[in-house]
């Protein structure tokens, strides 16, 4: 339970920051893709650099977490259809002006249409499970 409350707090922080920096704003996302306003691109780039420096710092300190366990970095392996999946995701990102994280911030902010984006994501996730049930090795 303590772990879950910790994640509730981290989630709160993440949602708060996404909202305050405008990452949940349709206009900001759309304008990043049209190249008119790179505010959000700079946010993402800064986050990547800071995240990288933070991971380097942890490594320099012995790569241990708070409880003294070795930090196990999770690497994502690509499947056969990952590239196509990424293309579909990109189209959704540009269409809905949200990604799986920012849509949650949009809902918190009271943006009604985000509920439909969210429902669509649940349906898409279910569809993935359904496809895997029919063709188990499809994305191996």
């Amino acid at each position: 339970m303590r772990k879950k409350l910790c994640f509730l707090a981290f989630g709160f922080y993440f949602g708060f920051v996404l909202s305050r920096v405008g990452a949940s704003d349709y206009q900001v996302i759309f304008r990043m893709f049209t190249g008119e306003d790179l505010h959000l691109a700079w946010v993402i780039l800064t986050a990547i650099i800071v995240g990288n420096l933070g991971m380097r710092y942890l490594k320099a300190r012995g790569n241990l977490d708070r409880d003294g366990r070795a930090i196990a970095i999770k690497k994502k392996e690509l499947g056969r259809l990952s590239i196509i999946g990424a293309a579909i995701f990109g189209i959704g990102w540009g269409m809905a002006g949200a990604c799986p994280g920012t849509v949650l911030a949009q809902i918190g902010e009271g943006r009604i249409l985000a509920l439909f984006t969210f429902s669509g994501m649940l349906a898409g996730t279910y569809l993935y499970g359904y496809i895997l049930a029919r063709w188990p090795g499809v994305n191996k």
């Binding site: 993402i44 986050a47 990547i48 995240g51 994502k76 392996e77 690509l78 499947g79 259809l81 990952s82 196509i84 999946g85 990424a86 293309a87 579909i88 995701f89 990109g90 189209i91 959704g92 990102w93 269409m95 809905a96 002006g97 949200a98 990604c99 799986p100 994280g101 920012t102 849509v103 249409l113 985000a114 439909f116 984006t117 969210f118 429902s119 669509g120 994501m121 649940l122 349906a123 898409g124 996730t125 279910y126 569809l127 993935y128 994305n139």
Partner: peptide
């Protein structure tokens, strides 16, 4: 509503096949 639902459908399906989303992959 339908437009955003379809956008969401692409995001949900695409994220699973891609193995993650903006936070997991990009950041």
């Amino acid at each position: 509503a339908l437009y955003f639902f379809i956008g969401g459908l692409f995001l949900g399906l695409g994220a699973r096949f891609a193995g993650g989303c903006t936070s997991g992959h990009s950041i």
